[in-house]
Amino acid sequence: MEKLAIAIDGPAGAGKSTISKLVANRINLNYIDTGAMYRAITYKVINNGIEFDDKVEIIKLLNSTSIDFNHNHIYLDGKNVDKEIRENKISKNVSYIAKIKEVREKMVEIQRKIASNKSVIMDGRDIGTHVLPKADFKFYINASVEERGRRRYEELKEKNFDTTLEKIIEEIKNRDRIDSTREISPLRKSEDAFEIDTTNLTIDQVVDKIIKTIEKRRE
């Protein structure tokens, strides 16, 4: 198969990462979780006790940070941080880091470099609109805020986190607001993206929709 680039965008909790991983496995693509990259630097910022509004220190930290993917696992300064970056404190605060211009510029530079020499499926908030505007296929994955909150709540319950559905929904609404109104590359649907509302669909149904769309256009 020729080199292929697929962009998957959408708000928090819509299922982008899970869906992208499954599509990657089905049609043999390299999965790049851009959200995990922002989570990784957020994790490091928190661990270093840096305030979220201290741009100077955040940028200094970023410039001495290594973020890489290997076999669909993310490594921060050489350490696998798959589990650590999924903690709720990261989910609540990643948007504050992701809206910083210099952070986004550095991440986009890394993402484009990865996509330049291999077939990829990449998910995030601004892949189709900014990172890979010439992607072969673009999808916008969405769901109601209530459904996205319910999914996140169930995920946290399984990990024995003490929280409430109402609190999670408010946190997701706040992330949506930050992501949609930030000055640099805000969350929005690319005009040429296929939109899929996953509210009442199973993961397998969404994956099938994406693969059928790709196969139909490439026949």
Rank of each mutant, 00 (worst) to 15 (best):
K134H: 09
K21D: 12
K159Q: 13
Y96N: 15
I141W: 06
R26G: 08
G78Y: 03
S91D: 06
S116R: 04
D77C: 08
L76R: 09
K157M: 12
I90G: 03
Y140P: 08
Y31W: 09
F52C: 07
I41D: 01
I97S: 14
L22W: 00
G124Y: 11
T34D: 09
I114R: 04
E84W: 07
E105I: 00
N25W: 00
Y43W: 11
Y75S: 01
V145I: 12
G128H: 13
V81M: 07
Y96F: 15
S66W: 08
K92I: 14
D77E: 06
K89G: 02
Y140N: 11
D53T: 13
G124K: 11
T34N: 06
I110V: 05
R148A: 02
K55C: 03
L76W: 03
D126Y: 07
A36E: 06
R104C: 10
N28K: 13
N48H: 05
N117I: 02
R112E: 11
N93Q: 08
V103M: 08
Y31V: 04
I67V: 11
K157E: 05
K134R: 09
I74Q: 01
F69G: 04
E155N: 05
K134Q: 05
K92V: 14
D77W: 06
I58G: 05
H71N: 07
N70C: 09
Y96L: 15
D53V: 08
A115W: 00
E146Q: 09
K79P: 00
E105V: 03
I97R: 12
K138A: 11
I141C: 04
N25K: 15
V94T: 15
K113M: 03
F69L: 10
K55F: 08
F137W: 05
K118A: 08
V103G: 10
V45N: 01
K106V: 07
S64K: 15
G124F: 12
N160E: 06
K21Q: 14
N93K: 10
I19T: 14
K79R: 05
I85M: 10
K101V: 04
E57T: 11
S95N: 15
